[in-house]
Write a protein that binds this DNA or RNA. Structure first.
Length: 282
DNA sequence: AGTTGTGTTGAAGA
DNA sequence: ATCTTCAACACAAC
């Protein structure tokens, strides 16, 4: 479930831990994850590149390398990056979810970035920075939900553009707003007291303002808590996040609503589970 | 023990 | 164009 808060946690960890390092070798047991390049050319291309910095758009991670190359990583459902150093081990690395190491990036003499991914859905692309930035899936991305440019005016315009769409689908559409996934859409809509099935045209200005505020508020809090580890997500130390401790509706169906005397219900929207309280959300 | 559901996304089909 | 279904894969829960 790496969504924006989890990816933001990883990106800031990486900027602290591996910026300035040089990739000296690469190993993979699942080369199918390399989407545009063979394992041998990947190895050849990435060797001796220095890591200049790490950034993200929505859930997409970009590791900028020397020589105008960029390593583009999408963690998909179960991917996570672990930074292991010779004299700095974490007990969390022993956890079951950290055992599915599919790829290893060797950094200098005694540091390794290991890529654990149970379900093998994650993707890795290595190309020139320009080509990566111009990939169709990258260019198609909507505005990042935590970007300062994502303001209320823009959000209002987005809703006006798609009047008939259900809001629970809209806010999760990466090509409209990048970063919100299945967990946070339920949490955000519960916080904003809006039903996921409500059409954007039926959401008035006051409610739109509340919803916009909830997006920023929930994501900001989740970043502060280093994300949600409902199952497989871990940070670069292999440690879980903390937001699962404060989830209010996600996977809480049949449990009492935290705000009223009703019960949380589970529905399906665009083939994905969605959780809400019919009494609190209108 | 076999079936079902799972956080993501893109391609294929309608 | 826009929507729905399915596939990529492995595992836990039922």
């Amino acid at each position: 479930m790496p969504e924006l808060p989890e990816v933001e946690t990883v990106v800031s960890d990486l900027n602290q831990k591996i910026k300035g390092d040089t990739i000296v070798d690469f190993w993979s047991e699942w080369p199918k994850a390399l989407k545009n390049i063979s394992l041998s050319s990947f190895k050849k291309t990435i060797k001796n590149r220095k890591i200049l910095g790490v950034r993200r758009i929505g859930k997409n991670i970009f590791i900028d390398l020397s020589g105008k190359k960029t390593l583009y990583i999408h963690l998909k459902m179960t991917g996570h990056l672990l930074i292991k150093e010779k004299n700095n081990s974490s007990a969390f690395f022993k956890d079951r979810v950290n055992q599915y190491i599919r790829h290893k990036f060797f950094l200098g003499k005694d540091k390794i970035m290991e890529f654990s991914d149970v379900r093998k859905f994650a993707k890795i692309v290595l190309d020139s920075t320009e080509k990566i930035n111009n990939l169709k899936e990258i260019k198609a991305l909507g505005i990042d939900a935590m970007s300062l440019d994502f303001n209320f005016k823009k959000f209002d315009e987005i809703l006006n553009k798609k009047p008939q769409i259900k809001i629970g689908i809209l806010i999760m559409d990466q090509n409209v707003i990048a970063g919100i996934g299945n967990i946070y859409r339920s949490e955000i809509l519960f916080d904003a007291e809006i039903l996921p099935t409500k059409k954007s045209v039926d959401i008035r200005t006051a409610e739109r303002k509340k919803l916009f505020a909830s997006i920023k508020k929930i994501l900001k809090l989740a970043i502060k808590m280093r994300g949600t580890s409902d199952s497989d997500y871990r940070d670069t130390r292999g440690a879980p996040g903390n937001f699962q401790k404060v989830l209010k509706v996600y996977r809480k169906d049949k449990l009492p609503c935290p705000k009223c005397d009703g019960k949380i219900e589970r529905g399906v929207l665009a083939q994905r589970a969605v959780f809400y309280c019919v009494k609190c959300q209108k």
